[in-house]
Amino acid sequence: MRLASHVKTNRLAMVGMIILWVFILGAVFAQLLMPHDPWRHFVPFMSPSVTHVLGTDDVGRDIFSELILGARVSLTVGFMAGLIAVGIGVLVGLLAGFRRGYLDEILMGLTDVVLVIPALPLVILVSVYLGPGIWYTILVIGLVFWPSTARVIRSQVLSVRQSGYVESARALGAGDGWLMRRHVLPNVLPLILAKFVLTVAAAMLMEASLSFLGLGDPMAKSWGMMLHYAFARGGFIREMWWWYVPPGVCISLCILSLTLISFSIEEGSDPRLRRALDR
């Protein structure tokens, strides 16, 4: 596939992929990589040392181990919420763009309503109502982040639908299902991918914000939750930077890598952009 080879040859995308893979591998093999049990209590407020690379927190847990486990929670929430959001968005966008008519009006009306509601307050409200829990967080983020995907997919479907090649295929005798499978989906797919990667980044950031505000699952050690505890339990006041800087850096790096990847997918899917970049 030409898109895949483009992502491979793009240097920035390569950097993004490497960073992301480091985090993903860290999350998958967390059990092997953690030097200590993240739930075990050592001496609280230890400074970094050889045994505790990033010291310990207020109840004496090893921060480095928490950080590795945090990758698992943050990435899970990001990818699952991204999957839900993009899934809904793609479904709505395809239906609205392909079927048009009243369905389009209703779906786009709904999309606009969800789109204008500020995301963070809504998510805060819903998560307070549902209570803490990692699956609730995933669900809430997924249900709030789909409208922009729906809009983008719909407009792309509209432009593909009116293109000469869809008209030609129709004249050849192709039905709606055929057009969707053979022409609309392949032409929308890169956009779906790019949108998915960006939504994952946004979902991770949203999860961190929620957790930082204390609305996350206290039993799930995400990077946002670490920041929350560092803030609430005196990490900032004591200037224990080894407590609050690493999770912040991890979140930023993850989002940076996802953004780089999504850029290169967009470039790869648009031949004009690709040519401009090669120059």
């Binding site: 293109s163 000469g164 090649y165 008209e167 030609s168 295929a169 004249a171 050849l172 053979r182 022409h183 392949p186 032409n187 031949p271």
Partner: peptide, 15 residues
């Protein structure tokens, strides 16, 4: 009954 449209540029799927 088959058409041949003007501008084959756009009537062929670029992918």
């Amino acid at each position: 009954v088959q058409p041949v449209f003007q501008d084959a540029d756009s009537t062929l799927d670029p992918r």
